[in-house]
Amino acid sequence: MELALVIAVVLIALVFDYTNGFHDAANAIATSVSTRALTPRTALILAAVMNLAGALISEGVAATIGSGIITPAQSAHGMTVVLTGLIGAITWNLITWRLGLPSSSSHALIGGLIGAGAASATTVHWDVIVEKVVLPMFLSPLLGFVLAYLVMLAILWIFRRAAPARVNRGFRAGQAVTAAAMAFGHGLQDAQKTMGVIVLALVVGGYHAGSDVPLWVKLAAAGAIALGTYSGGWRIMRTLGRKVIKLDPSRGVAAEMTASGVLYVMAIGLHAPVSTTHTISAAIMGVGATQRLSAVRWGMAGNILLAWILTIPMSAAVAALCYFLARLFLP
């Protein structure tokens, strides 16, 4: 197999990681920016650094992506499957970024691999997809919504007699910590997925054995997602920070604290590649529901939900189309 094809897949995987960074930057910083706890530039720097740190911690999610979704043959054809899966994911990322919709880069990547795998008659591990993708896909936003709602109720009760201005100052300072925790969770989840794809490409190309992640892959993926994060996700930041609900600092802390906790449990405990977008969006809706149900702009929430539902099938369809086109030009 030509080394050039392997290098091309690795580079495209890093491009996906970069688009993941600017697409999902808003996940970590939208709440802290919308409440004016952090300036946009400071928040982006913080998110980039913590994404980098989170990406270097664990390999569980990388192993799930690298060996649990599809098993391509060790051949140029197998590399074509991985390549077109990545292209499908990147294409859907760019479409939803252009529309300002916070869809899931994680599920775009998984959908891309599924679509290319199914189109090529490659082995697709449906049991792993159900256990590690589909069930957590529903569980993580549900947990995010319910736990954020309960955490916010607890905060409202604990500080019910405190002066609002003093409480807001305290929670605004606390958002620097919770935003960092959220960015760390994003790196722990999303950069791991790109590492898994690169390891998959190396295995298919015959340049690596096993599911462990080489250090250079960790550094490359962590660096790409950090650079993408620093480039910013302004469109999506506006959607999450302003169009779903008007947040105050205490609600920002509750949403970020809850979402980051769910991400840690899913990544470290279950090795499940869940969506940071789903989790933080649901947490924001959860804290908003404590105010009153009408405080949540359910029309925008419905648009976000539609993007969630469409992500896996649409990225799979794009990847399948890319695979059929690639077969006309590649071996």
Rank of each mutant, 00 (worst) to 15 (best):
L3I: 14
V10E: 01
L11G: 13
D17H: 09
D17G: 09
H23Y: 07
H23A: 06
A25Y: 01
I29S: 00
A30E: 00
V33C: 09
V33P: 01
L44A: 13
A53T: 10
G54P: 07
S58T: 11
E59W: 15
A62W: 06
G66D: 06
S67D: 07
P72I: 03
M79G: 05
T80S: 12
G88V: 12
N93F: 04
I95G: 09
G100S: 02
S105V: 08
G112Y: 12
S120K: 05
T122C: 05
V128H: 10
I129R: 07
V133P: 14
V134N: 02
V134G: 03
L135F: 11
L135N: 05
F138S: 09
S140W: 02
P141E: 06
V146I: 14
A154R: 10
L156Y: 11
A165M: 07
N168V: 01
N168D: 08
V177C: 05
V177K: 06
A180M: 00
A180G: 08
A181H: 08
M182V: 04
M182D: 03
Q189N: 13
D190K: 02
K193P: 06
T194V: 12
M195A: 06
V197A: 11
V199C: 07
L200I: 04
L202M: 12
V203P: 06
V204L: 01
G206C: 08
G206F: 09
H208E: 02
G210V: 15
V213K: 02
G223T: 13
A226N: 03
G228A: 08
T229V: 15
Y230C: 13
M237T: 07
L240K: 00
K243N: 15
K246I: 14
A255K: 07
A255P: 07
A255Y: 01
A272R: 09
A272M: 06
S275D: 09
H278V: 03
R292Q: 07
R292P: 12
S294M: 13
W298L: 06
G302Y: 05
I304W: 02
I309N: 01
P313S: 06
F324D: 14
R327Y: 12
P331V: 11
